[in-house]
Nucleic acid binder design. Structure first.
Lengths: 332, 332
DNA sequence: CTGAAAGCGCTTACAG
DNA sequence: CTGAAAGCGCTTACAG
């Protein structure tokens, strides 16, 4: 291939000026139908593809959004990104994706790299990672930043997040309405903000129906001991008939434990095959496979919707100081 | 903020020419330590961030790679992308990510959008989607294309993929060596190439040990009936003592079925709590939660490695006609 | 090792 | 509705 075809080639081929071609391309000036036809024909014939680098440089705008995610393999983030992508594509934007991992320095490198590319905004999917330095860098370049998260206590930034508390409350009430009186909460790390919010919602639901929150019916997630802990809990409190599970992994562990003890997991519309049926309500995303199989009730935190809203707000360039809280959906 | 700081500001501040700054930035000319110091100081003081759009435009190069993925929520793809990202970041490249879904037109739009941005190569993670048109477009712009996939029968493009056949064979032999003689294969769609390759490997393993492949011990994945089908199979052939499962979703369905029938799932090092223990070997990625919990043996197709290799080859710009086949790893 | 200057491909007032 | 021309911020021969 010789030289790339440029807007000049198109102009010459279509017998118009470059201005006209440029205007037609961006849909700005009012160009006659005939001219538009000629230009399109030329573009097609020449296989012309517009050089956005040049366009961006000249116009000072970019239609590029950066996303920094801690780990795309986390289904919650994967869904957020799908939502972001949906809106960006729809609005003619493209997405730079960088993965930060847990390192603070890597995080800053990601941001720097995105800013060098000229993104006009950055969406952060970092869980509970600290973003103070990031904000300073972005502010200096006056690049808007927005956080998409499960939970957060950051208050000086625009943020879209889940309503963990409401989700837990609704699930708890569902279980209570089905007749469960002894309900436990399994999983999640002790220091997780998300877990704390959910426990609050769990308590909300219990209190509303005159039930008490019992710390001893709660097991946090300590990697190696989990299964043994669950087993002990089930043996110690055989009358617990339902559990809220922090995530799909916890749900699986519970399933294995229950099956090991010769009891069965139940769901409203499923038939029980064992005497002591235990009902589960899990937190999770649709992307998680066995949840998607329609076998377990779960609270969908709507990560795609979180992504969509975050992208929307960023593109509108509105500064919002109170968090946008996305309502969870009970999938029953 | 007034005007963005440019290379000229840096040059003025550091009392050198723009050439010198540019050279120092890209590490090309031999610049004295003193000068480099002055420049770095100026960059720091001014908060200068290089405009890559301008650099790309002028140099005709880009350090941007495009990725088109069918669905990031698929853990296999998510891991591939993590691998790609690792190499790109390491080499100073950035990644545009677009999600195509299943639509052919969306696919072309993604490609077009990436080319407009000036990517210097595109990695395709599209499963078994057809990419002929894509190739034509990319070729015309002389942009290298590379496929990262689970399986593939495309032969005119550079491709990095899993060795499904070997993985299935190794898993089968493992089960046989543990004493299993009646082994089934569950899950996967009938028309899946990946499934076909695995069945071939499954048969390889069986034949090698003088066992026969029995089609009736095989259930393909038909969404609504799966659980019932598994149950029927287990009842009809109670002597099947082990299964290869096509994916983690299938594994879960099997677990539920087994638990429902009052049997137990076993793994070498696990204790069996029921008389009829069934052993499972699943295909999957580390990202899949319950597999990661170390509860089930699985074949890791090394998607991150597939991503790494794909990125590596693309950056080296080498055309490779025979597929790069990544060896799977048995996680036991 | 450094400086002056051309030009990458586009957009955008400005004048017609 | 269209054209000539300046300039976005950088890189890169070229000459010193």
């Amino acid at each position: 291939m010789a030289r790339k075809t440029t807007i000049h080639d198109v102009a010459k081929y279509a017998n118009v000026s470059v201005t006209t071609v440029s205007l037609a391309l961006s849909g700005k000036g009012r160009i006659s139908d005939v001219t538009t036809q000629k230009i399109n024909e030329a573009i097609h014939q020449l296989g012309y593809i517009r050089n956005k680098n040049a366009a961006n440089l000249r116009s000072g705008q970019s239609a590029m959004i950066g996303v920094i995610v801690k780990d795309i393999r986390d289904p919650f983030y994967a869904s957020i990104i799908t939502g972001i992508n949906e809106i960006l594509t729809q609005q003619g934007y493209v997405m730079f994706l960088t993965q930060s991992g847990n390192e603070q320095t890597a995080l800053l490198q990601c941001a720097n790299s995105l800013i060098e590319q000229g993104v006009s905004g950055i969406i952060l999917c970092l869980g509970e990672l600290i973003t103070d330095e990031l904000k300073i860098v972005a502010d200096r370049q006056s690049i808007p930043l927005i956080i998409a998260a499960q939970s957060s206590n950051i208050d000086n930034m625009t943020i879209v997040r889940s309503d963990n508390r409401l989700g837990a409350k609704l699930a708890t009430e569902y279980l209570i309405n089905k007749g469960h009186r002894q309900i436990g909460y399994l999983g999640g790390r002790m220091d997780s903000l998300t877990r704390a919010e959910r426990l609050a919602g769990f308590a909300d639901g219990l209190f509303k129906h005159g039930l008490k929150f019992k710390a001893e019916w709660t097991v946090s997630h300590e990697q190696p001991e989990e299964l043994a802990d669950f087993e002990q809990l089930l043996k110690l409190h055989p009358n617990i008939s339902a559990f809220l599970c922090h995530d799909s992994s916890t749900t699986l562990s519970l399933m294995l434990t229950v099956s090991k003890l010769g009891r069965a997991l139940g769901k409203g519309r499923m038939i029980s095959y064992f005497e002591h049926q235990i009902e589960v309500f899990s937190f999770g995303t649709q992307a998680e496979i066995y949840i998607a199989k329609n076998l377990i009730n779960y609270i969908d935190n709507q990560p795609m919707e979180i992504g969509r809203q975050a992208a929307d707000i960023l593109l509108q360039n509105t500064q919002i100081s109170t968090p946008i809280v996305i309502k969870p959906e009970l999938i029953i």
